[in-house]
Design a binder for these strands. Structure first.
Lengths: 195, 195
DNA sequence: CCTTGAAGATACAGGATTGTATCTTGAAAA
DNA sequence: TTTTCAAGATACAATCCTGTATCTTCAAGG
């Protein structure tokens, strides 16, 4: 029996936990099932996390590491936003599904909400849509007045709704339609230059 | 000890089951908890349904009865939309949340998907946002050009996202903010009269 | 090579849930 | 009033999960 130690083992544990959550859901997300999937025993889990709730937070933080999100900087708000939406569409949908569909039980048991989990996992994460907009403002592409955080998050709200309707990745055509017919008009209303 | 019989008892059982699901989530949706909330015993439940999964389907069917949704007609797109959002916020969001957030465990256990259940719950109903917009167009309040179905559904996408993040009813102030800073500007861009 | 500490395996009590069985009680119909 | 059958109240074994404790085994640092 070959042993895994330290960080290497921890990676395997978190990977196994994530697979278990995605494939079997929160109801089957037991310490026993996670340990079995990682081919180890519950004791190893309890040495690292106090229980299921702490493990959930660790798993979400593990798979949602912001390091692997590259923030596009194309010089135009349209291309920035489309790029960011495509990245979210490709890579984050599994995470969003887990946070919403699979973790209902977690929220009930802990009395928390997805916002709370997000705060716990990303204490100081920058608001990326806000960043993209601020860069557009700095370029003089958009006027700062009345471009609220709510407007900044509109494309992602629509992307998410689209995803929940189809449960499949959203097409690039739909992404561009959202940006061109919804988001940019909302920003263009306060454009510095333009019609 | 006063007894309830037949249909009257069944209503009480399904009401209790729905309350239990909404308030405590699927993880706490046990036959015992439902029976206790209905002030009866598990045997009564097992006489009617074979188990938890059958009870879930019965509850969803029970709550999703074709209750006539009052479609507001106030003479203004703003008031129509705000009224409709408040109605959705009060009545339908609870159901949507149950179908998506709370029932993740059900989908895993039964191997079904949210769309399967949604089809049963919402058979074919009119696209209410589209109706509100068409009436505004008929009044000459909004120009027909470029007011797409996607724009019509934007307020509800934002409402839904807001709800999913907090798992609580959305405030009226937020509803009005969505309408005034997002939806109406999108429509006003093609207004017949006005700035 | 030897020591150390964690990995890995196993056992255990406690608690919760399931599904069934059994019994008494009471509401409704004959 | 009497009969009937479901409601209601237990009780039960079986199963699962939790959290802890104990023991052996192995990888890494000294």
């Amino acid at each position: 029996m070959t042993k895994r130690l330290g960080a290497k083992l921890e990676q395997a544990l978190l990977d196994a936990a994530w697979e278990q959550l995605v494939e079997q859901g929160y109801a089957a997300f037991t310490m026993d099932a996670v340990a079995a999937r990682a081919r180890t025993s519950r004791a190893v889990l309890y040495r690292r996390w106090t229980g299921k709730h702490a493990l959930v937070r660790a798993v979400v933080a593990h798979v949602a590491r912001p390091d692997d999100v590259e923030i596009p900087d194309t010089g135009s708000l349209r291309r920035d936003t489309i790029s960011m939406m495509k990245i979210a569409n490709r890579g984050r949908l599994e995470l969003i599904t887990a946070l919403t569909v699979h973790l209902g039980g977690y929220y009930q048991e802990t009395g928390t909400s997805p916002v709370d989990l997000r705060k716990t996992v990303f204490p100081t994460r920058p608001h990326i849509p806000r960043m993209l907009l601020d860069r557009a403002i700095a370029r003089g592409e958009v006027a700062p007045a009345r471009v609220s955080d709510r407007i900044a998050s509109v494309p992602y709200a629509l992307l998410q709704q689209e995803f929940f309707m189809t449960l499949k990745p959203v097409s690039n055509a739909t992404i561009e339609e959202i940006v061109d017919t919804i988001f940019l008009p909302l920003c263009a209303r306060t454009r510095v230059r333009g019609p």
